[in-house]
Structures are given as C-alpha cells and as structure tokens.
C-alpha cells in the first residue's frame, strides 16, 4: 500500500494554476520561435520548415546595421557600466559607514526607480540641446544613456558578491605583507571576478533589450534591433521579426545561463 500522509504545504488548486501559468508563459514564446522557421509568410499559419526568414534577416542591410549598432552600444555601455559599478561597489561596501553612503546607493539605483519613459523624455531634451550645440550626432549619446541605466544592473551583483566575501581574506593578505594594491590585485580581484563577469552580462543583456530610451535618444538612421523591430510593427508582420527575436532570445538565454553558473558558486 502506498504511504499516505498529510501534505502540509499543499494548497488546493495551486499546482494546477502554477502549471497553467508556466504553459501560458512559454506558449507565446515557443510559438514565436517555431514560426520563425515557417516557410510561409504568416506567423499563425504553419506551412513547413524553412530557415529562409533567418537568411532574409541576415541579408537585410537594415537588420545588419541595427545588429552591429546594438552590439557596439551594448559592448561599450556594459564595459563602462561595469567599470564604474565595480569601483562604486568597492567604495560603498565593507568599510566603516560614512555619511552619504545612502545617497550614493540611491543615485546609482535611480534608473531602477524612475519610469523609463521619464528618463527617455529627459534625455531627449538634454541631448537635443547638446546635439544642436555641438553638431555631434554619433552613437555616443546612446552609449552614454545605456551605460547610465545599465550601471545599477552591474552594481547589484558585484556588491552582493563583495558583501558575501570574507573580509578576513583581505585582512590576512595585509597581514602577509601585501600592500593595498597587492591585496586588490592578488586577493580581491580574483575573488570578485565572477561577480564582475555576472554584472557585465546583466548590463549587456539590459542594454541589448532596451527600447524606450533608445527610441527617444537615437538620431535618424540609428536604429538598434529592438527599435527596428518596433518600427516593423507598423507594417505587416512576417516571420523575419520572429527570426530576429529568436536570435536575440537565444543570446539572452546563453548569457543568463552563464550568469547563473557564475553567481551560484558563491559560498
């Protein structure tokens, strides 16, 4: 006879709702992915397997340009964000509390609190003035804007890693004749590296995904992949959009998996 017991943590109907939620969450995404391989022009009527929408996207000059721009912006912005976030995390953790620490924390995390549309409008106004004054129309504005809102995403995992790090390790290093720079170089940095990598990855993903701020800040002909796709919405949707989405999705999943592996071995 099977062992019967009273499952304290079971609540009636919860498991069914949860399973339904997972199905509903993934069904649209899977549909999107599947129809990127459709040979026909519809995103709802299946006509057979084909990779030609990927080929179309690949050969589309606009998509190529947008991809390159997305990658350049995400790389530069995440590099800047990770650098300043690492420094700030080192400055705000594991030292005697000093006046203004909360202020620093609030400023760095401000992009998480302010609605994107508000920041977007603010940057539209500011960069509009600067563009007119300097005549510079390049990608610099987008990189700067992305670097700013990516900073908290880089800062949080680095800070978490630092706070989880045993302070006595650095104490031990100074005890063993390491000067402050040697301590940083030989102890802090190697131990912090997974946190920095995780932060950089999140920043990269966040930059790659941004629509609203990019839409407001970009000059003419500076579409990134997301703003290009948003523009396509006005026209008839073809599986080309699905193909681009699937590629972006794949990249995100890979980066996130790496992120989880990096942050898991924390103890």
């Amino acid at each position: 006879m099977a062992e019967r017991r009273f499952e304290v943590s079971r609540l009636p109907g919860f498991a069914s709702v949860a399973i339904a939620v997972f199905v509903l969450l993934y069904l649209p995404i899977l549909t999107l992915v599947v129809f990127s391989f459709n040979s026909g022009p519809s995103v709802a009527v299946w006509e057979g397997w084909s990779l030609h929408w990927y080929a179309d996207a690949w050969n589309n000059e606009a998509v190529k340009g947008a991809t390159a721009r997305s990658l350049i912006i995400a790389t530069c912005a995440s590099a800047i964000a990770t650098t300043v976030a690492t420094m700030a995390a080192l400055g705000t953790t594991r030292r005697a509390a000093f006046g203004g620490q909360t202020f620093i924390y609030v400023v760095i995390n401000q992009p998480l609190m302010v609605p994107e549309i508000v920041t977007a409008v603010a940057l539209l106004i500011l960069f509009g003035v600067v563009k007119q004054a300097t005549g510079y129309q390049g990608l610099g504005y987008l990189i700067l804007a992305h670097a700013a809102f990516c900073t908290p995403f880089a800062y949080l995992p680095i800070r978490a890693r630092l706070e989880g790090m045993d302070l006595s390790l650095e104490t031990a290093a100074t005890d063993l004749y390491a000067n402050p720079w040697q301590t940083f170089r030989h102890v802090t940095l190697p131990l912090l590296a997974p946190g920095i990598a995780a932060g950089a990855m999140l920043a990269f993903v966040i930059s790659l995904d941004d629509v609203v701020i990019t839409e407001f800040v970009k000059s003419g002909g500076q579409d990134t992949l997301p703003t290009y796709m948003l523009g396509q919405m006005r026209r008839a949707i073809t599986p080309e959009v699905n193909a681009i989405s699937t590629a972006l999705l794949g990249l995100t999943v890979i980066l996130l998996t790496l992120f989880f592996i990096l942050t898991r071995k924390k103890n």
Partner: peptide
C-alpha cells in the same frame, strides 16, 4: 569611498 563612487555618480 567617495573617490571610488565618483565615476558612477558622474555618469548617472
């Protein structure tokens, strides 16, 4: 602490 946070603060 302030010096290390300065670049991030300026950027933001």
């Amino acid at each position: 602490g302030w010096l290390l946070s300065a670049p991030a603060l300026s950027l933001l």
